[in-house]
Design a protein around this nucleic acid. Structure first.
Lengths: 194, 194
DNA sequence: GTTTATTGATTGACCAGTCAATTAAAAACC
DNA sequence: GGTTTTTAATTGACTGGTCAATCAATAAAC
């Protein structure tokens, strides 16, 4: 059976299965066997490609962050002004690909993993700094010196809304989340400089 | 050795030890044995009083929420106006007793536990709704019909700031957190009704 | 003598990681 | 072109460790 070049396919399948499994169970207490079975292979193969469970979890986290970054970039290509730039940044986090209930669940678990794993913390820092920096850059032309403060608040608000949506019962509502954050952004901008 | 009336003492010691252990390890993967040893007793006794690990975790979560509620009430007794009422609500979450790094770490883990445990979800809902309702009530005289929207945003902001502080390296800074949220509150109030 | 407190050994389940064995594609060699 | 060797893919049984939960035994207080 061994077709060559399976590695990337298997890895991708395992990463997807990891996120799905975490999302479904709502915790990091997922077994390698279950992940492997969901991905259509044996547990041995999962170990073969990733070396261990921790590596799999980190790879899955890295994947969600990469997916998010991709979404941000995609949203930014067509922006025509700073306000659109802000909206693109905010929307990316609540875009369907990052905002399915099980993705949100996995994301929140990855967040908390940063408390106990050095490497997860590093990944989270990268995400956090990038969001901050994106916001600051977009705000600069609109809010000048106040950009740093506003960026800090908006970043916290984004994570807070994400958390709320992830924990409330029922489906997530990306549009409502974006609207909530953007209304705050608009107020921040109109209040002192409008 | 059996002095009578040990139950409440043991339970309290176990709850403290649970929070400490979760805070220190940064995850819910703590063993009953370690918790019991930290609390100065055998693992058997821990099971005897709580029936099982899940009950211990839930009791610890309940305890942090009760502690938080206590802090809110304590802050509210001396308020003289709505704005002070708001500040009391916001400050409670970032008061020392709720904002030691290991308490924050435990709190965040309890948050995520709500994704996988029905009972944890119930507890989180209670907290969430109470915060929301406290904020609305305090905002009503200041923001009228906009109170609901503002309360929603401020609640999300509080959780977001809490998350950020918990995940960033180094010590937590309660004063900075309160200042950040209150600056937002003041802006919300001054912007449209000032 | 009944109830409460307490221990630590034990059990039973679970699971991450290892390993030897199998299959087949590809490459090397003649 | 056919034979041999290497290499990638794959499995599932096995191991060693961990841990939650149980239990029988003990010790004091009432």
């Amino acid at each position: 059976m061994p077709k060559l070049g399976m590695e990337p396919i298997r890895r991708a399948a395992l990463i997807d299965a990891t996120i799905a499994e975490i999302g479904e169970s709502g915790s990091l207490d997922v077994t390698v066997s279950r992940i492997a079975r969901r991905a259509g292979m044996s547990s041995g193969l999962a170990h073969h490609y990733f070396g261990g469970k921790d590596q799999m979890l980190l790879a899955a986290m890295r994947h969600t962050l990469k997916e998010y970054a991709r979404e941000v970039r995609a949203g930014l290509v067509s922006v025509k002004n700073p306000r659109e730039r802000l909206e693109a940044i905010v929307s990316a986090g609540f875009a369907p690909s990052n905002f399915q209930p099980h993705t949100v669940s996995a994301w929140l678990n990855f967040y908390v993993m940063a408390l106990s794993s050095k490497q997860a913390r590093r990944l989270h820092c990268i995400y956090s700094r990038r969001l901050q920096s994106n916001l600051r850059f977009a705000l600069r032309p609109l809010a000048g010196a106040r950009s740093d403060d506003i960026a800090l608040r908006i970043a916290a608000l984004i994570d807070g809304v994400y958390l709320h949506q992830g924990l409330r019962a029922g489906a997530t509502d990306g549009d409502a989340a974006v609207a909530l954050v953007m209304s705050q952004v608009d107020q921040d901008l109109s209040c002192f400089s409008g």
